[in-house]
Amino acid sequence: MKKNKPLVKLNNAGVYRDEKWLVKGVSLEINKQEIVTLIGPNGSGKTTTGKLILDILKPDEGSVTLNTKKISYIPQKINIDWAIPLRVIDFMNITSKLNKSKIVESLGLTGVDHLIHKNLLNLSGGEFQRVMIARAIAKKPELLILDEPVQGVDFNGEIKLYNLIKEISDKLKCGILLISHDIHFVMSSTDHVICLNGHVCCSGTPNDVAKNPAYIELFGETAASAISLYRHDHNHTHNEDGSISK
């Protein structure tokens, strides 16, 4: 039996808009220190599911139970109007009250502390993404939700970012939900993969999902053979289940 309640629990949740179900029958759980990856094609309801978890959208059926208030969210897209003169330092404190040294420290973790006084509009896509992540970590959340965090980040950056996410999970002991459209590339440290296509098409460990017939049907054989197990360090290899063998 588990000692703690899950951070968030979706029970058969669905969202109905404009005469159709955006997602339906989604059940999932995110626990402390757990990394859950949500994958699926475009329009499969990944972001909608994220918003359900975050209470941005209310479920039209089923239920969502959120057991934490310490949440950090990295949305897929933020459009900041030119009219708002917003520096990185202002943005870091947008939903929290941190002193400057904390802010510098967090920005340092993602390697962008030199940008602290820059206007957000003058950052490149990759820099902006790092600032977003730094802001999310600075809040020391119990639940961290990242919607397509590697967008606009090159391959090397992507690996670094995944390592960073793993580090965050180890250090903050928070639950992490990673939303990704990249079906070929699921973090090896993911505990649980949920494959979404308007409903939960299959779920389990990365390896279970890759072998699942529903997954193969949805994405094809090549995708299935390519899933999971990226090598984030070269001094060891991964077993099929993601565990490490020297």
Partner: peptide, 19 residues
């Protein structure tokens, strides 16, 4: 101020993070 400004920058962010 705090909640309004957060919502001005991003409604989703403000809502998700309890503002």
């Amino acid at each position: 101020w705090k909640s309004l400004f957060a919502a001005t920058v991003s409604y989703d962010l403000a809502k998700a993070e309890g503002m």
